[in-house]
Amino acid sequence: MSAITFNTLKFVKTLKSSGMSEEQAEAIANAVRDAQEIQLVTKYDLQKELEPVRKELLLVKWMVGLVIAIQVIPLLQLLVK
C-alpha cells in the first residue's frame, strides 16, 4: 500500500491565510490527517485473507453433505423394502 504524505503545517497556514482561526485550522488539519491514515483493503488483500475461510467452508459443505447422505441412505432403504 502506498503512503500519501500530508503537510499539516502548510495546510494550517493556508487555512489561516484565508481567514480561519488557528484552532479551527489545526482541527481540520488533524481530521484530514486522521482520515488519510485509514488503511484501505485491496481486492488482492481481501482474496488472500478469505482463502483459508473458503477452504474451511468447502470442508464444512462436504461434511454436511456426508452427514445428510448417511442419514438419508437408511431411510431410502426402508422405503424400498
Rank of each mutant, 00 (worst) to 15 (best):
L66M: 12
K48S: 05
W62V: 07
V72P: 06
L57P: 00
M63E: 11
E22M: 00
D34T: 02
A35Y: 00
W62K: 10
I38P: 00
P52A: 06
E37D: 11
L78I: 11
A31M: 09
K16T: 12
E23D: 13
L75A: 13
A3R: 13
T8I: 01
M20W: 02
L59I: 13
N30D: 09
F11P: 01
N7P: 03
S18A: 11
Q71N: 15
L46P: 00
E56S: 04
L78N: 14
E26N: 11
N7V: 06
L76H: 04
Q24C: 04
G65C: 06
Y44F: 07
F11M: 10
A35P: 00
K81G: 06
L57F: 10
Q24A: 09
L75T: 12
E22L: 05
K48E: 14
A69L: 15
S18M: 07
Q39W: 00
A29T: 07
E22W: 01
T42H: 11
I70P: 01
R33H: 05
L79H: 05
A35Q: 08
A29D: 04
L75Y: 08
A27L: 07
E22P: 01
V41M: 04
L15I: 06
V60M: 01
T5P: 07
V67T: 15
A27D: 10
K10G: 11
L58C: 10
A29F: 00
P74E: 12
K16Q: 14
V67M: 13
V67D: 10
T42M: 07
A69P: 05
K16L: 02
S17K: 15
A35G: 09
T8Q: 09
T8W: 00
K43A: 11
V41C: 03
E51L: 07
M1G: 14
A69I: 13
L57G: 03
Y44T: 08
V64A: 15
V53G: 03
D45H: 07
N7H: 07
I38R: 07
K10T: 15
S17Q: 14
E49D: 10
L59D: 08
E37G: 09
A27C: 03
S21N: 13
M1Q: 14
L66K: 10
L57D: 03
A3V: 06
L59N: 05
V32T: 08
L66Q: 05
T42R: 12
V67L: 14
V53L: 08
A29W: 00
I4Q: 13
I4K: 13
D34C: 00
P74T: 14
S21C: 08
L58K: 15
K48N: 13
W62M: 05
F11I: 05
S17R: 15
I38G: 03
Q24R: 07
R54T: 06
A25F: 05
L75Q: 12
T42F: 06
S21E: 14
E23R: 07
S18P: 00
L58P: 03
K48H: 12
R33C: 01
N30K: 10
L40P: 02
F11Y: 15
T42P: 06
K13W: 01
V67I: 15
L46V: 11
V12H: 02
Q36P: 00
A35E: 03
L40W: 04
Q39Y: 02
S18Q: 13
